[in-house]
C-alpha cells in the first residue's frame, strides 16, 4: 500500500501536475469570465477550445509554422468570432432571461461539434512540434518536459495579460463594473451589450490559447469538447465563479489531481476533488 502511494506521490508527478496547472487554468479562465460577467454558463466553451485546437492545427500545417505562432492569427480570429456570436445571438436571447441563453449555448455546442465533424472529419489530431519529446534534466533524476514548460508559460502569460487588461484599461474596468452592477455601469456610459460582447471575445481568445495547449498536449477529436467543458467547469467551481486567481488555483488543483490519478484515473481523481470541494466549500476558494 505504502509503496503504491510512494509511486504516485513522487516529486516528478508533482512537477508535471504543477506544469499542467497552467493549461487547466487557462481552460477555466474563459469559462469563469463568462460566469462572472455575463452571468451565463457557457456550455459551448469546450467546443470553443476544440475549435481553437483545429484552427491552430490547420493553420500551422497550411503555413508550415510552429503551432505556437498560430496564436497570432487564432487569438484575434476567435476574439472576433466571440464578439459577433455575443452581439448577434446571445445578447438577443439574454433579453428573454438567462435560461434561453443557456439553451442557446447548449445548441451552439452541438452545432459546433457537428460542423467540426463535417469540416475536419472524425480523425484523431495532435500537433507534434520537434521539441514535444525533449526534457530538461534536473538533479536527482527529475526532469521537466519542455512542452509542458512552454504550455505553462503561454498559459501564465495569457492570464497575466488578461489580468492587466481588466485592471488597467477603461474597457477592462468597464467589464468589471458591469459584473458588479449593470445599472451603475450604464450610468457611467458603459454599453452593457458591448461589454458582454468584448467579454465573450476575450473568453474566445482564451479558448484559442487553451485549444493550442490541448492540441499540443493530447490527441483530440471534434467530439472532445465535452471533456474539456467538464474540466473547465471543475476549475471554475474549485476557484470560485468569476475569479481569475481562483482559476489559477483551480487549475493547479486539477493539474495535480490529473497527474496523481495517472492515465487511467486522472479524470476520476479530478472529479473526486471536485465533489469534495462542492461538499465542503461550494462557493469556491476565491468566491467573493
Amino acid at each position: 500500500m505504502l509503496e503504491v502511494l510512494q509511486n504516485i506521490f513522487t516529486a516528478q508527478n508533482a512537477i508535471s501536475g504543477i506544469l499542467l496547472g497552467g493549461l487547466f487554468a487557462v481552460l477555466g479562465v474563459g469559462m469563469t469570465i463568462i460566469f462572472g460577467i455575463v452571468k451565463l454558463t457557457n456550455l459551448a466553451h469546450g467546443e470553443f477550445v476544440i475549435l481553437g485546437a483545429f484552427c491552430s492545427t490547420l493553420i500551422s500545417q497550411a503555413l508550415d509554422i510552429d503551432p505556437i505562432l498560430t496564436l497570432i492569427i487564432t487569438i484575434p480570429l476567435m476574439f472576433i468570432i466571440g464578439m459577433v456570436l455575443q452581439s448577434v445571438l446571445i445578447n438577443r436571447v439574454m433579453l428573454q432571461g438567462s435560461e434561453p441563453a443557456l439553451l442557446v449555448t447548449f445548441g451552439l455546442s452541438i452545432i459546433l461539434q457537428d460542423a467540426m465533424l463535417l469540416l475536419f472529419s472524425a480523425d484523431a489530431r495532435k500537433m507534434n512540434p520537434s521539441y514535444a519529446q525533449s526534457n530538461i534534466s534536473l538533479p536527482g533524476g527529475l526532469y521537466i518536459p519542455v512542452l509542458d514548460l512552454i504550455l505553462l508559460i503561454i498559459s501564465l502569460v495569457t492570464i497575466l495579460v488578461l489580468t492587466l487588461f481588466l485592471r488597467r484599461t477603461y474597457m477592462g474596468r468597464a467589464i468589471r463594473a458591469t459584473s458588479d452592477d449593470i445599472v451603475a455601469a450604464s450610468l457611467m456610459g458603459v454599453s452593457i451589450k458591448k461589454a458582454y460582447a468584448v467579454a465573450m471575445g476575450i473568453a474566445m481568445a482564451t479558448a484559442a490559447v487553451a485549444g493550442l495547449c490541448v492540441g499540443m498536449r493530447w490527441t483530440f477529436y471534434p467530439s472532445s469538447g465535452g471533456e474539456y467543458l467538464l474540466r473547465a467547469f471543475g476549475v471554475v467551481v474549485i476557484g470560485g465563479m468569476g475569479s481569475i486567481p481562483g482559476a489559477l488555483v483551480g487549475g493547479l488543483v486539477f493539474g495535480l489531481a490529473q497527474v496523481f490519478g495517472g492515465a487511467s484515473y486522472g479524470l476520476l481523481a479530478s472529479y473526486v476533488v471536485l465533489i469534495i470541494m462542492l461538499a465542503v466549500r461550494p462557493q469556491g476558494l476565491f468566491s467573493k
Binding site: V183, M188, G189
Partner: peptide, 24 residues
C-alpha cells in the same frame, strides 16, 4: 444620476470606481 443606495462597484477599489466615472 447618483442612484439610491449608492451602488458602488463593490469589488473595485475606490480609485477604480472614480475612474469609471471618466469612462465616457
Amino acid at each position: 444620476l447618483v442612484p439610491q443606495g449608492s451602488r458602488c462597484f463593490i469589488r473595485m477599489t475606490v480609485e477604480d470606481n472614480l475612474i469609471m466615472g471618466s469612462y465616457p
